[in-house]
Design a protein around this nucleic acid. Structure first.
Lengths: 239, 239
DNA sequence: GGATACTACTTGTCTATACAAGTATAGATA
DNA sequence: TATCTATACTTGTATAGACAAGTAGTATCC
């Protein structure tokens, strides 16, 4: 049979066909979907290809499969549309990700800061503080500032960040249980403008992030990207 | 070869073996994982079985696969975990939501626009276009511009947006199947500056959003908020 | 009638093979 | 030096066939 003469893979076609039937009302909840064998015959495909289509639709929650019985259209759960979050979580995480070959650590010290307030610490507690400028082909593209609760990562200062990125190290010692992200548009102060080599009025995207671990604020970080774009692409699983 | 003499399926064994290597430190982030062929040989399995194991691990976010290059251990970012998205989807949706008591419709007409390109329409097709300024206690807080595919919502112009918000109406006639969000920091043109009563260099947050329905681009909207904050709060499901 | 075996169907797993398509590298060529 | 090319590898898709295992209904035996 044909293989890749069409722009889309065959299993994608089968998936789309079934999804169309569900959304058009041709197939209603609890209705039986064609079996793998019948689908294969109908699309002139092999059973494995039909199997892949049905398996993926089941993972996406559109159908339910029961061994020995058949495949059925899933009932729409009460609850709003869910976004496929994997990609979004990934994007958010990547935003703060740095490669050791591209970073420039400016400060790494214990300081006393008002920022302690944001971390629910006393005003004159000591916290770790690091500033990193992320470069891409020698062009600065991201400024990040991190404040780390020493109670959560006491050995932060003695890490070799050529071997492990700060994100990775923190994750290894303090599993993130909760996170808060605040995205806003800002203009930067002169220091950051210099580091990022941008004009004074250039709008930047700021991502502030707090993470909690063991019921404590583990980190507070500020990430600033000039002219950067933050793209989230997601599919609604159910309309 | 053997098939199901063991309690677990072969592809599960391969998966578990790789996960074990990752968690024990035998395999570190960015390390190359054995190729499908080598895995197959090593486990006395066929390549398809190794393929299934790797494909599922990639879906779970533990490894990254690159066609033509190989398979690599994913970096243990918090993003490897899943964010509870419900709240985020809601926040994003609410961002474009307006209450009739607080809106000021400036335009609502069929126009011809280059924007049609973004919607995969021909250059001189007609599309609906509306501009809304969202006010809070008489202070403008949000500017939004919507382009609507008339094929998806032909009756858009005749709606009474005192009874139903544009978002709600569009959702009722065109179930959103896919959405793309681009967040960026911008400065506005003079027209928008006037409408929002802001200074020329005030950084604004821009959210561009495209939605698809029935394989067509249904809407393209631009939402601009000066000094606005966009807050996402979520729990990580897997630490 | 009630338990058992058989049959027909379903999904689940696995194999062995094939070709398509993307990437990196080394070597030849201009 | 710079660019093309062959090739060796990778993952992606698809096939045709096989057996395992779960379910429901039917026929058979007691």
């Amino acid at each position: 049979m044909n293989r890749s003469e069409q722009p889309f893979a065959l299993y994608e076609k089968i998936k789309k066909s079934i999804v169309r039937d569900i959304e058009s009302g041709t197939l209603n909840p609890d209705d039986k979907v064609l079996s793998e064998n019948k689908l294969a015959k109908s699309f002139n495909a092999s059973r494995m290809t039909a199997n892949r289509a049905l398996k993926e639709l089941a993972e996406e929650g559109r159908i339910v499969r029961v061994q020995g019985v058949g495949t059925f259209v899933a009932r729409p759960k009460p609850g709003a549309a869910l976004l496929e979050i994997k990609s979004i979580a990934k994007e958010i995480a990547d935003w703060g990700g740095v490669h050791s070959s591209q970073i420039l650590v400016l400060k790494k010290e214990k300081i006393t800061a008002k920022i302690a307030q944001k971390m629910n610490l006393k005003f004159d507690d000591k916290i770790f503080h690091s500033i990193i400028v992320h470069k891409d082909r020698n062009v600065p593209v991201q400024y990040s500032e991190r404040f780390i609760n020493p109670e959560v990562a006491p050995l932060y200062l003695s890490q070799d960040f050529k071997k492990i990125t700060p994100s990775d190290y923190l994750l290894s010692v303090a599993p993130v249980q909760e996170a808060e992200h605040i995205i806003e548009a800002v203009t930067c102060n002169k220091e950051i403008q210099k580091l990022l080599k941008i004009k004074p009025d250039e709008p930047c995207l700021s991502l502030k992030r707090r993470t909690w671990s063991y019921d404590m604020v583990a980190t507070y970080s500020i990430i600033i990207s000039p002219g950067s774009r933050y793209k989230l692409v997601g599919k609604f699983i159910r309309g």
